[in-house]
């Protein structure tokens, strides 16, 4: 669906940010991109909708070469949710903020109303419909940004550091949204440092370091490789750590905090 072939990207200041990237993002999968700061994660995702064009190699999305297509054309299929909500919010009301992209993409009035209602209800923003988005809290602004992208129903949803500034409840909610998207056949790409957030989703994980992809595997496998994690400066998920302490390194880990809690309770009862 999205394919990177021998992609290199050099910033205008001469820094080589991506080196020899070969990557296929498949339909319906959850892909997590992890790595230290400056590893090239955000640069990589900006290639998916043509915001950045490769200096060498080729990126194709839905059989379109990103070099030949406009960002608007590609964004219709690939929605990117950026890290900082303050970098996109500008409308005088929440309603208009959601409508902005729908109008840009040429949706008809009827479809706009329908998509708007869905987005406001789904993200619990209905009561703020006429409120200025600038007055929302950090978590609400983030939800508004996600709503304004999901409103046009892109096939691929790319999230850049979605958990920054989010409390536990919001993160749980975000996990549910991602699971819902996957159940609808959408592809979700997450760039995050928050390993605890990624873990319950059990995604395919690619690890980046110095502009290169140094590992590509299932989360369960990646987070067992201590040397790899040290190289990419990533800390093992606590649930995996806990599971290894209880069952040994080769065993499967708890997939979420509730499974772990259940195990501890049943263990206490049996003892």
């Amino acid at each position: 669906m999205i394919e990177f072939s021998s992609v290199e990207y050099r910033h205008p200041n001469g820094v080589l940010a991506l080196r020899n990237i070969d990557l296929k993002i498949r339909k319906g999968e959850v892909l997590a991109i992890v790595g230290e700061n400056g590893a090239g994660k955000t640069t990589l995702i900006k290639h998916t909708n043509g915001l950045l064009k490769p200096s060498k190699g080729k990126v194709t999305a839905f059989d379109m070469d990103t070099n030949d297509e406009s960002v608007a054309n590609l964004s219709r299929k690939i929605g990117i949710i950026f890290q900082n909500p303050d970098h996109q919010i500008f409308s005088e009301s929440v309603e208009n903020e959601v409508k902005f992209a729908l109008k840009n993409f040429g949706f008809k009035e009827e479809a706009i109303s329908e998509r708007l209602e869905w987005a406001l209800n789904f993200f619990d923003l209905e009561r703020y419909r006429t409120t200025s988005p600038m007055l929302l809290s950090g978590g609400e602004k983030k939800r508004l940004c996600i709503a304004s992208v999901l409103a046009w129903d892109p096939d691929v949803v790319v999230m850049d550091e979605p958990t920054v500034g989010q409390d536990f409840i919001q993160k749980e909610r975000l996990i549910k949204i991602i699971q819902m998207l996957v159940s609808k056949g959408k592809t979700v790409v997450i760039v995050s440092h928050d390993i605890e957030f990624i873990w319950p989703l059990q995604p395919r994980v690619i690890v980046m370091c110095g502009g290169k992809i140094i590992a590509d595997n299932k989360a369960g496998k990646i987070f067992q490789e201590r040397e790899l994690l040290n190289k990419a400066r990533i800390v093992k998920p606590q649930l995996q750590e806990l599971s290894e302490k209880i069952h040994g390194e080769s065993s499967g880990a708890f997939s979420n905090i509730y499974d772990a809690k259940q195990w501890v309770i049943s263990k206490l009862k049996s003892d």
Partner: peptide, 13 residues
């Protein structure tokens, strides 16, 4: 530049 990227990703040409 980041704002431009965010708005272009929402279909602004």
């Amino acid at each position: 530049l980041q704002i431009m990227d965010a708005q272009k990703s929402r279909g602004l040409e």
